[in-house]
Design a protein around this nucleic acid. Structure first.
Lengths: 219, 219
DNA sequence: GGATATCGGACAGTGACACTATCCGATAGT
DNA sequence: ACTATCGGATAGTGTCACTGTCCGATATCC
C-alpha cells in the first residue's frame, strides 16, 4: 500500500508519517520505483503503536525511537522490556544530593530483598530514588524504606493477575510478542494510576461529609 | 527574606523564581519599598512544592498553576484533590470515536459498581476510558471491563495502607494539610509505577532462563 | 556619603520539541 | 496526454519552560 492508504488506515496524517519515517520510528517501505514505496501490515501496526505510545503513554519521539529501535534490531524480550522501562516517564531532573545517595542505597537494599532487578541506570530505580528522597524531604521526614513495601506488594499482585489473565501471550508470533509486551506494560499504567487517584478522591469525599474533617474556611 | 535568599533556600534560580511569580505559581512578596519585597516560609514551601511537581510529577506550569491557584483561593480539600487529579498526566489526545463512547459507558458502570466518584470531566476517568479503549483495540479485543478490577483492587489496597500509615494527617495545620495531600497523591505515583515496571522486568527475566538474571551478550 | 551590589519588574531571546508546509521531479491512473 | 499523487528534502511554525538583559531604585559597606 502507499502512504496515503497507510495514513487512512492509521489515522496518522501523511506529513506526520513522513516525519516518523525521517526519525526512524517507521521503517522505509519497499521501493518499487525511485519515488514509489510499498507499505504493509507491519507498518500499520507500527504506526498505531507509535500513536498509542504518544497519545496514551505520552512518550517523546526520542523515547519511542529507542523502543522501536530495539524492536527493529531484533533484540530479545528482556532487552526490549528494559528499553521500554527506561523510556517510560522522564529521567530525574535534579542533582545527586547526599540525601539522594542515601536514598539510593536504601532503595537498592529493598529491591534486593524483594528480588527485583537492579539494572545499572534503570529509570525505574532512579524514579524510586528521587521520589523516595522527595517524600523524606517534604512529606514524611524519616520515612523508612519499608514503608514502600505496600506499593511493591500491590504492584506484584497486579503483575501476577496480568500473567494469570494472559496465559498464551508468550506463544504468539515472536514479532508480535514484543509489541504486545510493550503495549501491556504501557497501556495498563494509566489505569492503575487512575484508580489510585479516584480512591484518593473518594477518601477525601468521605472525610468531608462523614467526619467533617474539612480544613477550609471553617478552619 | 529577599529573593536571593529564597533562591538559596530552595535551589531555584532567581530568574526562574521571577518567572514563577509572573505565572502566579508564587504569591508576590510583601513590598517594603517600591522595589523591595519580603518573602517568608510559605514562599519557601511553595517554591519547593512547585519544584517537586515539576521534577518528580513532571507537571506543566499551567497544571501546577491550577493546583496552586486552588490552594491560594482557599478551596476545600475535596476541591484541591479534584484539581490535582485533573492536573496529573495529560488530557487525552485523540478523538471521541464510537469505541471510546462504548468504553466510557462501561467504565462508568464499573466505577459506579466500585463506589468511585465519577466527576464530569475527571481526567482520571478520561484516562481510564482511552486506555481501556486502546487495550481493546490493540491488545485484547473483547477485553471485559471486569478485567480492570484487579487494578482497582490493588489501588484500593494501596490507599488503605496509606491511610493506615498516616493517622494524624488530617489534624495538622489546615494550610499544610492541603499541601501534604497534594504531595501524598503525587509523590507515591512514580513509586507504584516503578514497582510494576520492575516486576515486569523480573517476569521476562524469569521467562528467559528459568530464574537466572541477565541475558547479557549471550542472550 | 559615595561607591558598589543587589533589588523588583518588564520584556526579549533561547533551545528543545513535535510537528506542518512547501517544493521538487517522478510516476500512477484515466 | 494530463492530472493527481508519489517519495524525499528542506524550511517553517507554535508551544513550552525557562534565561538574559535592561531599567531605575534601594541596601550595604567603607
Amino acid at each position: 500500500m502507499k502512504i496515503s492508504e497507510l495514513s487512512e488506515r492509521t489515522g496518522v496524517s501523511i506529513p506526520t508519517l513522513k516525519f516518523y519515517l525521517r526519525e526512524g520510528l517507521l521503517r522505509p517501505g519497499t521501493l518499487t520505483a525511485p519515488n514509489q514505496a510499498d507499505y504493509d501490515e507491519s507498518h500499520v501496526r507500527r504506526a498505531r503503536l507509535v500513536r498509542v505510545l504518544r497519545e496514551v503513554a505520552h512518550l517523546s519521539i526520542a523515547r519511542i525511537a529507542a523502543i522501536t529501535g530495539a524492536l527493529d534490531r531484533g533484540e530479545d524480550l528482556y532487552e526490549v522490556m528494559g528499553v521500554t522501562v527506561d523510556s517510560l516517564g522522564e529521567p530525574p531532573a535534579g542533582e545527586a544530593t547526599p540525601e539522594r545517595r542515601l536514598a539510593a542505597a536504601e532503595i537498592d537494599r529493598l529491591l534486593a530483598a524483594l528480588g527485583l532487578p537492579v539494572r545499572d541506570g534503570s529509570l525505574a530505580r532512579e524514579q524510586l530514588i528521587v521520589s523516595f528522597a522527595a517524600i523524606r524531604e517534604m512529606l514524611f521526614p524519616g520515612f523508612p524504606v519499608e514503608g514502600l513495601a505496600p506499593y511493591a506488594r500491590a504492584a506484584a499482585d497486579v503483575v501476577t493477575a496480568e500473567v494469570a489473565a494472559t496465559p498464551g501471550i508468550f506463544h504468539a508470533e515472536p514479532e508480535q510478542v514484543l509489541e504486545r509486551a510493550v503495549l501491556g506494560l504501557t497501556l495498563f499504567e494509566p489505569i492503575l494510576l487512575a484508580f489510585r487517584r479516584l480512591n484518593h478522591e473518594k477518601l477525601v469525599a468521605g472525610r468531608l461529609d462523614g467526619g467533617k474533617g474539612l480544613p477550609g474556611e471553617a478552619g
